[in-house]
Design a protein around this nucleic acid. Structure first.
Length: 646
RNA sequence: CUGGGUGUAGCUCAGUGGUAGAGCUGCCGUUUUGUAAACGGAUUGUCGGGGGUUCGAAUCCCUCCACCCGUUCCA
């Protein structure tokens, strides 16, 4: 007899060896059809595996996150079986569940291609149709290794030998096919359903190590229902439509070309966007008591040797060698701004009264990233950081961090990002500084985030070698995460570069340096803005805010007059006097994502009015008003959020 | 860095050994237009670069480059 307790607190007795499936049947046949697995005392359990003793039980269906994971996991198994049937000689390795789906890594000499997908999917559907039961078998370790070795499945055999001694080795069977697997699984392949799709094939290393052989990874997505699959595919389409590379071209924001790989040619529109973002940050920093500076891009390698970059970062730096008659000089483009900022700090004697000293720069950095790492304007070789270094005492770390987080959150919110994830990375294996220093700086940082009321996710051992760091990740309009801001505590660099201040005790002390960025890089952040807004920028950011479009050429002079008045009020305005129908102009500028179209025809010209049409899905509403009113309304609405707050 | 894919007009793409194409954009003309595409016309090319095979190459082979998707790394 076993006693099972249900989530509602009720408990029932069942005979020994009862399965969760049988439990479900005892409740209702409808539930029995839906049940995929169970949670026994919180542990996921096969629906067909007998219960071992008293437990709390929770039945898992496709509606539960765990149920969806099982569907994806089993889809991976079905994929593996299908592939092995269609491509004999292919070895299986691992096939985990990932966000939105699953993948399976195979070893096969010939490449898979997208064209194989149709056949594989067909075979998968066949296996699912067949509805084979998943059965769990516990194996002796050596027997299992022998089994897989004899089958030629060397990867599986290797996996088993590397499992901890006390681990139970389980094999799951589906029909004639089986796989090493911890489980649990669905009752049968049929429960995987039809809402799956193979997405792409890519290379991946065995155990993620580039020194190992390369495997072929087939990615798939799987969902509980067809609707969810469709929704997911739709989201992907939406992401493609928002792709900043596409919008960058369509809206003429920027372009890139092979002669300057990983560097951006900003066009007029993109530059306007940049300038608005930069000016906004500049205003925020000014209020937050930062000083803005500008330091050289090209610096002699003597400094990089002192800072340690020449040792640690040389392969990522662009180096310039120039011959000056007899002697050569070696310079490098700065990959970071910090050493240069210390040089500014070092000018003149600093007192403790000068601290905290916050030096900010829109610093243009270059890093020689591998080609494969580049991606549009999100990951480039030449980028501008909204960088700053706060020189302070150890006691000031907490307060500085607190006010930094407050500033960062407020800035993200102004751009429409409400969701923020903060990662806390503590001491790495190889590090500089004593344990006491690390204890102190980690505590100061942690106290600060707690005081700022932010939850953090621990990222153990991922800190910089010179100190712990915070990483700020924001979530965009379609649910994607982007790492932008960062704050790093540094006890090393100020020491190396000889930064000191005179303390209250009249002695020289070494300041702590906080490296911090909010947007991260202007390029990436603007890329994120493009995708987040899908090119439909809020009025204050829009490269062109208003188009004055005429209905007939009789209104040309009047349109120019309207344009002049709006421009004089500081708005970014263009006229469209072309010999085209108003329908044509409205469509074109709507597609061009211009926020406001000011339509003027004979009527408006006679009455001294404008008809404002706001960008929006199927928005036909227009506001008719005098020119002066339009100036007032548009000036008000185009204020950046910080200025709008007054 | 490694695996796969792609590279043809400004954009999206067709063209698999025999005279380089379509749609959209742009340009010119007609149309003076009332809220998401008026009509007509002409033009548009180192077929990613280089080399090779062939009577003949966008097409086959070699090589280099860039981009895309993964992996990795990061701002």
């Amino acid at each position: 007899m076993v006693t099972l307790t249900f989530p509602d607190g009720a408990s029932r007795d069942y005979e020994d060896g009862i399965t969760p499936m049988a439990v479900a049947k005892s409740i209702s046949s409808g539930l029995a059809k839906k049940v995929l697995a169970a949670k026994l005392n919180g542990e996921l359990w096969d629906a067909l595996r007998p219960v071992e003793g008293d437990a709390s039980i929770e039945l898992v269906t496709a509606k539960d996150p765990e149920g969806l994971e099982l569907i994806r996991h089993d889809a991976a198994h079905v994929l593996a079986e299908a592939v092995q049937e269609l491509f004999p000689g292919t070895q299986v390795t691992i096939g985990p569940v990932i966000e939105n789906g699953f993948y399976y890594d195979f070893h096969r000499d010939e490449p898979f291609s997208d064209e194989d997908f149709a056949a594989i999917e067909k075979k998968m559907r066949f296996i699912i149709e067949r509805n084979d039961k998943f059965t769990r078998e516990v194996w002796d370790r050596n027997d299992a290794i022998k089994l897989f070795t004899e089958m030629g499945e060397t990867y599986k055999a290797e996996l088993i030998s590397d499992l901890p001694e006390d681990e139970t080795i389980t094999i799951y069977r589906q029909g004639n096919w089986f796989d090493l697997c911890r489980g649990p699984h669905l009752p049968s392949t049929g429960k995987v359903g039809k809402a799956f799709k193979l997405m792409k094939v890519a290379g991946a290393y065995w155990r993620g190590d580039a020194n190992n052989v390369q495997l072929q990874r087939i990615y798939g997505t799987a969902w509980a229902t067809q609707e969810e699959l469709d929704q997911h595919l739709h989201m992907l389409e939406e992401a493609e439509k928002r792709d900043h590379r596409r919008l960058g071209r369509e809206l003429s924001l920027f372009h890139m070309q092979p002669e300057a790989q990983g560097m951006v040619f900003w066009h007029d529109n993109g530059t306007t966007l940049w300038r608005e973002v930069e000016n906004y940050i500049r205003r925020r920093l000014q209020v937050a008591d930062y000083q803005e500076i500008k330091t050289p891009i090209l610096i002699n390698n003597q400094l990089w040797k002192k800072s340690g970059h020449w040792d640690k970062f040389r392969e990522n730096m662009f180096v310039s060698e120039v011959s000056h008659g007899a002697h050569d000089e070696v310079h490098a483009l700065k990959p970071m701004n910090c050493p240069a900022h210390v040089q500014v700090f070092n000018q003149g004697l600093k007192s403790y009264r000068d601290l905290p000293l916050r030096l900010a720069e829109f610093g243009c950095c270059h890093r020689n990233e591998p080609t494969g790492a580049l991606h549009g304007i999100m990951r480039v070789r030449g980028f501008t950081q909204d960088d700053a270094h706060i020189f302070c005492t150890e006691d000031q770390i907490t307060d500085e961090t607190k006010s930094f987080i407050r500033l960062l959150k407020s800035i993200y919110e102004d751009f429409g990002f409400e969701d923020l994830l903060v990662k806390f990375s503590d001491r790495p294996q190889t590090r500089a500084g004593t344990d006491e220093t690390w204890d102190k700086s980690e505590k100061a940082l942690m106290d600060a985030v707690t005081a700022a009321g932010v939850d953090v996710v621990l990222n153990p051992g991922e800190g910089a070698f010179y100190g712990p760091k915070l990483e700020f990740v924001l979530r965009d309009a379609i649910g994607r995460d982007w790492q932008c801001g960062t704050l790093q505590v540094d006890f090393v660099l100020p020491d190396r570069l000889g930064a000191t201040y005179i303390g209250e005790d009249d002695q020289r002390h070494i300041p702590v340096m906080l490296h911090r960025a909010i947007l991260g890089s202007m390029e990436r952040f603007i890329g994120i803005l493009i995708e987040n807004y899908a090119g439909k920028f809020p009025l204050w950011l829009a490269p062109t805010q208003v188009i004055v479009a005429t209905i007939t050429s009789e209104a040309d002079d009047y349109a120019q007059n309207v344009c002049d008045k709006l421009t004089a009020a500081g708005l970014r305005v263009k006229t469209d006097l072309r010999n085209e129908k108003i329908n044509y102009k409205i469509r074109e500028h709507s597609v061009g994502k211009i926020p406001v179209i000011a339509v003027v025809g004979k009527r408006e010209a006679e009455e001294g009015k404008v008809a404002l049409r706001w960008l929006g899905e199927g928005n036909k509403q227009q506001d008719i008003m005098s020119i002066d009113e339009a100036v007032t309304v548009l000036s008000q609405k185009s204020l950046p959020p910080d200025l709008a707050r007054g």
